[in-house]
Amino acid sequence: MINTSSIEWSSFKADLQQHPELVLQFQYAPGKRVNANYHITEIKQAPIVSVDCGGVMNAWTEIIVQLWEPSEQETGRAMQVKKALSIINLVESKISLNPNGIVKIEFGNSAFDTRQMFPGEFKIDGENLILDLTPDATQCKAINRGGSCGTTETGEECCAPAQPIKQKVELVNLAADQNSCSPGSGCC
């Protein structure tokens, strides 16, 4: 995975640990926050192994924090960071999360299709720690490596299957100038 706005799990957790008493809020679109009664329903670790269009193998790990908005409004405010950290500690008591894993926040509601987004900047606003979420995007790793996606100037396509190489084979008569058998002679 290649993304300049990604954050690793260890950094994400360290940022949270700096503000345990603040209220954790998630902004999923400009001016739109996840309802204050959200739940962290699960934390997933997803090892990814892929082969891109240029035939290069890639591997990385994603740590996905899933948020859920109950359909019924609950009174109260969003959870404090220390509550989120207690959920993280519970998860980490069951599975060892890769500290270098790329963090994604998974969220959706009736007005916003469920998707995985990258945590952006943490902002402090009074008693709130607001985490801006930025959308993920598809990408061509061949282009990111300096290659191309599509037809190159030489007419080659990075995403097309490789053409078999035809080799010329020179046949050599090893039996020339030697005693050899001929069909039906009984010597073979």
Rank of each mutant, 00 (worst) to 15 (best):
F122E: 08
P99E: 13
K94H: 12
M57G: 08
V56Y: 13
W9Y: 15
A137P: 00
N89Y: 03
K141N: 11
L97A: 13
I130A: 08
T154V: 02
I87R: 12
F26V: 04
G150A: 10
T41E: 12
F118Y: 15
Y38F: 14
C53A: 10
S93W: 03
I130Q: 08
K166V: 08
A176E: 15
E69A: 09
V169W: 15
E62S: 08
A14F: 03
E153T: 10
I88T: 02
Y28F: 15
A111M: 05
Q45E: 06
L174W: 15
Q163A: 12
Q163D: 06
F122S: 07
K44E: 07
G147N: 10
G184Q: 08
P47D: 11
I88F: 13
D125P: 00
A46T: 05
E106T: 01
F118E: 05
A160H: 12
Q139E: 07
C53G: 09
I63D: 00
I2F: 14
A14N: 13
V81L: 03
L174H: 12
M79S: 10
E156A: 13
S6N: 08
W68D: 06
G76T: 02
F26M: 06
I102P: 00
Q18C: 01
T152G: 15
I105D: 03
G31S: 09
I43H: 02
N100P: 00
C158P: 00
Q116K: 12
N173Y: 10
I95S: 04
A46I: 03
F118W: 07
T114K: 15
M1K: 11
G101C: 00
L174S: 07
F26N: 07
K104S: 04
G150Q: 09
S10M: 05
I40A: 08
T151I: 13
R33L: 11
I7V: 14
